[in-house]
């Protein structure tokens, strides 16, 4: 299922936190149109790598390219504008805002986001607001949250917050979506739904996904290829079948108990 064009290129990326080397010389590509899985034991540097890609943490070394353009050193909001959007491992919904407003705040280039915008161009602002609201309702329907649109996001259940995170990424109309453990703490029924939503978003909306996940069942069903990280580097890449057979992966996960 590999497309020919790498949408994201990670080249020798390094990150030190004081004396701890969280990511050391990590290099891989994510191909356009894939759902790429990123797995590895705790502390392998997966979430740190997400933080590096999205600009929340600066790289110590190496380069990151998105659609051929270098993006390390850009601030998070600039990287968002390039077309990369992320979710957080623990949902970070805007608690005292409604579900609808959690989504309506996302689109870029809103005229009304200029402090003078709603004074100078009230009609354009209203039109954009109506469009954004319609789009938000569509997406809420897509993730089955539309009945909760006027509820405070803080009042949602943990699983619903996960869906809201996914909805937020769809609202952004991105090219590449980074999902940090979308399945953590989600019940099996909702998990099936989530997998379905991601797969549909990939095919219908032509998105590329890179996702961190510990639920092997979900990863094996959803992702191809899978990249395995351990101690800050990527140790292998391959299809679900290849990963399952690989000795180095077993070693990484089971700490060499197999020998």
């Amino acid at each position: 299922m590999k497309g020919p064009v790498p949408i994201l290129e990670i080249k020798n990326v390094e990150k030190d936190f004081g004396g701890v080397r969280a990511v050391s010389g990590c290099s891989f590509n994510v191909q356009q149109g894939t759902i790429t899985g990123l797995i590895g034991p705790n502390g392998a540097g997966k979430t740190t790598l997400f933080n590096l890609i999205t600009g929340f943490v600066p790289c110590t070394g190496g380069q990151i390219y998105f659609q051929g353009k270098r993006i390390d050193r850009l601030p998070p909001h600039e990287i968002f504008r390039q077309g990369i959007v992320r979710t957080f491992q623990i949902p970070r919904e805007l608690k005292r805002m409604t579900v609808l407003e959690n989504l309506m705040v996302v689109p870029s280039h809103q005229t009304g986001e200029n402090i003078w915008g709603s004074w100078l161009f009230p009609r354009r602002v209203r039109r954009q607001e109506e469009n954004n609201e319609a789009q938000a309702i569509d997406i809420l329907r897509f993730v089955n949250l539309v009945h909760l649109k006027d509820e405070y996001a803080g009042n949602l259940s943990a699983g619903q917050k996960k869906l809201l995170e996914l909805a937020r990424t769809l609202m952004a109309e991105p090219q590449l979506v980074l999902l940090d453990e979308p399945g953590a703490g989600v019940n099996p029924t909702l998990m099936k739904e989530l997998v379905e939503h991601i797969r549909r978003a990939c095919t219908e909306k032509n998105l590329t996904f890179l996702l961190i996940e510990h639920d092997m069942d979900m990863v094996m069903r959803l992702c191809d290829p899978i990249i395995v990280m351990c101690n800050g580097e990527n140790i292998m890449e391959g299809s679900p079948h290849e990963v399952r057979q690989n000795e180095a992966v077993l070693e990484a996960y089971l700490g060499g108990l197999g020998r």
Partner: peptide, 14 residues
């Protein structure tokens, strides 16, 4: 308001 609720989410929304 989004910034008040969570600066990181606001930044992650561009």
């Amino acid at each position: 308001k989004a910034i008040r609720e969570d600066e990181l989410t606001a930044a992650a929304s561009g």
